[in-house]
Design a protein around this nucleic acid. Structure first.
Lengths: 207, 207
DNA sequence: TAAGAAGTATACCGATCTGTATCGTTAGGC
DNA sequence: GCCTAACGATACAGATCGGTATACTTCTTA
């Protein structure tokens, strides 16, 4: 392994173990053993375990949001449909056999102080995801894109929490159907309704 | 403190600290210090820390579900309204300044192995809550009470996850409005529709 | 009221935790 | 090709973890 790759390899290994066992339950010794590097090397890249966690969350934040954007742009062009397609992306996430809940919610759950850097990093991820939903809701010309975004986000969070316990992908599909039902009843700007009547898209109600 | 009260006092102290700091981050020494008992006493009541966690979750499971039942029965008699009132109970929960996320989701998040006793205890709580929702959905004569129950549950989980991060109560109200919107569009058995037309209850759509 | 169960206080155990120190080796940029 | 920074390996420090042992005291109850 080239030296320039070590940092990312450490982050990926740590993310895998944090997801598998949790943050407190994953020791530094396990991380370096799984990554196959010396402890000195880890502490040359990251000052403390908390720094490692923060860097790992940052990496995952970027990766996840980029992946969602790419998935959405590839699977739908209609802006309303794009909001629903985010649930298809979610389904691919929870369908992974290694899925054990949202790592950001888990991170906040193990660092519950709202002033803690790890909590704030997790919160920032959620805010950026909601901002993306709002961007989609705005493009779809919904009358209240902010509210639509938080509703979509609430359904995402619910599906992930349920899937964390049941370890099945159905909650993601159920959340998609619920979102379709709700969006079909939402007001959109006249120009949007003119081009695409809100009640004329069966996929909206059927998810 | 009477000796018969010590066990419950230990469980309440442990629950408070688990909620405040998490399960791994809460040490035995802190629990006994906060409870004001000797370590020997704790280990006379609970064989291991895991046993303490399990007993604490069990206590909280019973308390929470009883509280929700009592709240619902006190605040609504109409069976559809009762499903929505569960979100008012949720709002009282997340409005507590000490709310830091669902302790069962956090427990599962820190004990991610689906075969782990703590994970299974958390899962059992969720199943019992869904069973109660199904009971309410059945009483409301919805055509698919099982699906309705899981949808209500998904909204509950979403609201709790969002409130865990934002530390505000609004997600609970938003989830109630979403539930009202969804239930208003649901089919109910003829006798139910005969007595109470599904589309004639404005509170359903407005939450 | 006497006996026994359960409480307190404290010292201790071995394991594990994060993080550091030491030192020989290796790889990459000039 | 050489110099230096980064690597691997290992030992270790100091704190904390869950859990036990011991010795003394207090409450409960038959």
């Amino acid at each position: 392994m080239r030296r320039s790759e070590i940092r990312d390899h450490l982050l990926d290994t740590a993310l895998r173990l944090f997801n598998q066992h949790g943050y407190h339950a994953t020791g530094i010794d396990l991380i370096i053993a799984e990554a196959g590097v010396a402890k000195t090397t880890l502490y040359r890249h990251f000052e403390t375990k908390e720094d490692l966690i923060l860097a790992a969350l940052e990496r995952r934040d970027e990766g996840d949001r980029n992946a969602m954007r790419a998935f959405v742009e590839q699977h739908a062009s209609d802006p309303v449909e794009r909001l629903l397609v985010t649930f298809d992306f979610l389904e691919t996430t929870v369908r992974d056999k290694q899925f054990r809940g949202c790592i950001f919610v888990s991170a906040a759950g193990e660092h519950k102080d709202a002033a803690h850097a790890v909590f704030r990093a997790a919160l920032m991820h959620k805010r950026l995801v909601i901002a993306y939903f709002e961007e989609l809701a705005h493009a779809a010309r919904f009358a209240e894109p902010k509210r639509i975004a938080t509703e979509i986000n609430l359904l995402h969070e619910g599906a992930m929490a349920v899937a964390q316990m049941t370890r099945i992908a159905e909650p993601a599909r159920q959340a998609r159907r619920m979102a379709g039902q709700l969006l079909a009843a939402e007001e959109r700007s006249p120009s949007a309704r003119g081009r695409r009547p809100a009640n004329a898209k069966p996929h909206l109600a059927q998810g």
